[in-house]
Design a protein around this nucleic acid. Structure first.
Lengths: 426, 426
DNA sequence: TACACCTCTGAATCTTCCA
DNA sequence: CTGGAAGATTCAGAGGTGT
């Protein structure tokens, strides 16, 4: 590891790979180029005629041949424990799949990885494309694989997962306990095994990592691929290295790497990037999506029935009500369990002021604790009690009434006892 | 819409579709069966020989032919505005893609939808498969498409959503301001257009929905497909209907439907799920767009913050509040969108009476329509307004005030004009 | 019909400001 | 001074428009 090697070759990868020995590479990652944005399927065949697969490939032969030669070379240079990850364009997905199935004989398909991300666009018609596919094949069944673990789903009860289970006398599954009746934890919290859907933020327009190269991938994506399929000191190859993200990631993780590209510009860019490998320290990924949220489901559900624009990333406002007053939307906030009405009010007031709102609505969820809060309440805030609070108060009122009725009933009864019994005796 | 039709046919879909007229169907959804779990790519060809696509398809011809005939029929019965959604097994993904590209000529590919879900597994080696692919093709460019909108990302800045933006002289994006330098609010934002990655929970093993049929899909998934590609009263076809989820979803959304399956068991199951096959015009389905399930969930969410005992399958009561009055729990009901306060009240009163409750709480969600309802209201019912209703009324009040203030301001201005101008002149 | 140019959008960063 | 929250900015994709 002390002597980490990265090599960048300016050449067509087919001829460059000829100089690489057979069974020498641990991982090949590639994001092949496409000759056309879209393949044309202008099949003008006779409907009555029996369908033939030749039709499907018409217009694709050149590309298929181009890729076949290269994939065959990739297969040759891979070690028996090696893997290949191919980044697929949507339109060529199925073609590459077919090619790989053929070259990597004996069902060495491992996974279809979905890289999903959120992205900007004002797509009007159809679904916004927001994923890319990466095909994962291995040369043999003895492929290297390091299991990575992800976070548990927010909805899972971790304790439940971690408790050891046994079967009781009736053979019914139950949680195991020790002699003191305490639960026994089965295994350490490793997390959930990584799934084949990877949510990794798309390279942001403001990211420092950006080089201006068109199809640049996030370093994080490549790091994950390298981590699961190689160990320290292994050798990674990218035959279409482009801006060199693969080599940067390999470097950062202590793997040797070879990059090939036919473009002079790409090779120079890669060499420069390797000089100072930078990786965007994605705040989103580090802190998690949840850390940006401030409206919880419960707060929103209290407001259900209103037409709302939920607001995250703002400590004071939970949502805007989509009915404007004086041309500005009205901010609304639900009082949290952990805060007093005054605390909620001042947070809301500050946020509303900065948005130039003339009015803001605070939904109170707990009985008031401060006798003088009405005078202290900022004037722009309108207070409304939550349904739950109203119901609770109504029930207390009813309970009180019920008790007092009982008391008066009992008194009446007692009165009768004293008074009437003589009558009965009479 | 009053006469919603669902038809379930026991037959091979190829022969059954022959009886369906050309250009009559708005949406075809299918989850085709697979002859083998995995296709075999036991290509023992000579490495030196030039790659030929015939190799790829060897062993697949039967299946390809089977599907080709059926997809061709599907193409025929589709209206010009119609779409098809095909649920793909991973191993046949690329085959179906190729077939569809051929049968749906002229690049009518729309989307590759990824249905992703979290699944429990202790898979040791490799990535946990946790997605399925749905291919979306349309017959022509004039396909029906209803845009659904989702929430903005947690990291998105609200100002950007609220404020109008322009470009300055240098062409750099900036927030727009009016002549006084005040921000201009943007037009109403609906949210983010739906992406092609759908995170929908896998059918929970214990879910009521589950019928025991192996490949059953969540109703939510089908509902989304139907919603984006059809309108009320349209006709949906599922040629491999299995347990009938497509037909159930179509019914819930007010679409006519035809289901075909070759298995007697599947057809019976579907008919049972739809209720009586002859009595398709059920009261439940007439209610329209939103399913009962969703409505009930929303009703309960309005009450969040209360300690409740939810009640299933009771026409009058949504839940009991876990605080007793006179030793009996208090029933509560939320007024539905489709009913008046009086209707809700009488349903609740009847149910509460039969439970011997002395008090019941009705949560009103809409402004009252009946002036004399207070006298008509059963005495055991206590009325409480929902938070949403209170907020809406408060906003109306504020709007009215704002208008009247403007008017009086204008009057004042006019007054000032008359009064002050002499002063200025002076 | 093809293509160049312009407009709109929102994710996630960078930057500033405030407590 | 420092850390975090709120505001400003960048940029690629999609679509519309005009030549």
């Amino acid at each position: 590891m002390g002597n980490l090697q990265s090599q960048v070759i300016l050449d067509d990868c087919l001829s460059a790979m000829k100089h690489i020995g057979s069974s020498t590479i641990d991982l090949v990652y590639l994001d092949p180029p496409f000759f056309t944005n879209r393949f044309h399927f202008s099949v003008s065949r006779d409907r009555k005629k029996r369908f033939s697969f030749a039709d499907v490939w018409s217009g694709l032969e050149d590309y298929a041949e181009f890729m076949e030669f290269r994939i065959t070379e990739i297969h040759r240079v891979l070690k028996d424990t090696g893997s290949v990850f191919i980044h697929c364009d949507t339109s060529a997905n199925f073609l590459l799949r077919a090619l790989l199935n053929s070259v990597f004989e004996g069902n060495q398909f491992r996974s279809e990885i979905i890289w999903s991300y959120r992205r900007w666009s004002n797509s009007a018609r159809g679904l916004l494309p927001s994923h890319q596919t990466i095909l994962f094949y291995s040369k043999t069944d003895q492929y290297k694989f390091n299991i990575l673990y992800g976070a548990y789903s927010e909805t899972t009860n971790i304790d439940q997962i971690l408790q050891l289970r046994t079967r009781d006398k009736q053979g019914i599954s139950a949680y195991a306990t020790d002699h003191e009746g305490k639960v026994i934890f089965a295994h350490e919290k490793k997390g959930v095994p990584l799934s084949d859907v990877w949510e990794i933020p798309f390279l942001n327009p403001k990211a420092k990592e950006r080089t201006g190269y068109p199809t640049q991938k996030p370093v994080l994506l490549l790091e994950r691929i390298i981590e699961i399929s190689t160990n320290m000191g292994d050798l990674v190859l990218d035959p279409f290295c482009g801006s060199g993200t693969t080599l940067v990631a390999a470097n950062l993780l202590g793997r040797h790497s070879i990059g090939i590209d036919i473009s002079q510009e790409a090779v120079e860019l890669t060499r420069n990037r390797l000089g100072s490998p930078t990786k965007t320290d994605s705040a989103l990924l580090k802190k998690g999506r949840v850390s940006y949220q401030n409206v919880d489901k419960e707060a929103l559900s209290i407001l259900s029935g209103l037409d709302l624009l939920p607001v995250q990333r703002n400590a004071g406002i939970d949502a805007f009500i989509k009915i404007p007053i004086d041309n500005s939307l009205v901010p609304i906030r639900v009082q949290r369990n952990t805060e007093t009405v005054m605390e909620a009010a001042s947070k809301l007031a500050r946020a509303a002021n900065s948005k130039n709102s003339t009015k803001a609505i605070l939904v109170r969820t707990k009985k008031n604790d401060d006798l003088f809060f009405n005078e202290k309440l900022p004037t722009l805030i309108e207070l409304i009690d939550s349904t739950a609070l109203c119901v609770r108060e109504k029930i207390e009122e009813l309970q009180a009434k019920s008790v007092s009725e009982k008391v008066s009933n009992r008194m009446l009864m007692g009165y009768n006892d004293q008074f009437c019994s003589p009558k009965v005796k009479f």
